[in-house]
Amino acid sequence: MAKSESKRETAHPPVSQPQTVFRHRLSTRIWHWVNAVAIFVMLMSGLMIFNAHPRLYWGQYGANLDQPWLVLPRFPGWATLPSNYDLALGRHWHLAFAWVLAFGLLAYLVWSLFNGHLRKDVALSRAEVAPAHLWEDIKKHARFDFHESEARYNPLQKITYSLVLFGLIPLLILTGLTMSPGMNAAFPWLVDVFGGRQSARSIHFICAMGIAAFIIVHLVLVILAGPVNEIRSMITGWFRLSPPPASNSGDSA
């Protein structure tokens, strides 16, 4: 296996034989897997907690006699943690892994700011946000053509990761804190920012569903783009490039 020792910036190697690029830093890989565990625990224990009162409201208050905007049947056991109804244990899981999620994100963001990961790999360049470029990227996704994004994140990927890193997870943390009566006394502005505890609970649920949708799309794309290579690169850091489409004469795996 010919490992390229330098961090490649080019999308395509000039030769058609399989080459590897170093794609994910150690900090990114550690955070990815720690976060994968934390996110699954948070989603599933969150559904357990939601099952205790599967109704959502807007505003400061909301209970059985008030008007909900969403009423769902209870989530089945395979989707919740624990799988049987146990609100106390669900809260223990949720409120323990909340620390892993929140401080994991904080450490990752600080480290990624420091080592340039955010600036070099996640931030969108001016050219990338041009509508024509984005449209090209959408068309490539529609054709399941991921060649160009093997060594670098493509624009849609960058937009999605930014939404998760700076939108969904921070919102989940803040709305989670807003639901705490103790935090309301410490930081009264939290409840004002979200327009009430029940609004915060609704936003918390919507963001959690956003994360669930992200995970589904993420896993589907990993499978479409070659699961072994993709998962190996998130473990070892090294990704095997496929030959560029032009020279793809039929000997590719």
């Binding site: 939601f50 505890r197 609970r201």
Partner: peptide
């Protein structure tokens, strides 16, 4: 004040 149940609902 707002009464917050551990189950998730609130009443003022």
């Amino acid at each position: 004040t707002r009464h917050d149940c551990v189950e998730g609902w609130s009443a003022i």
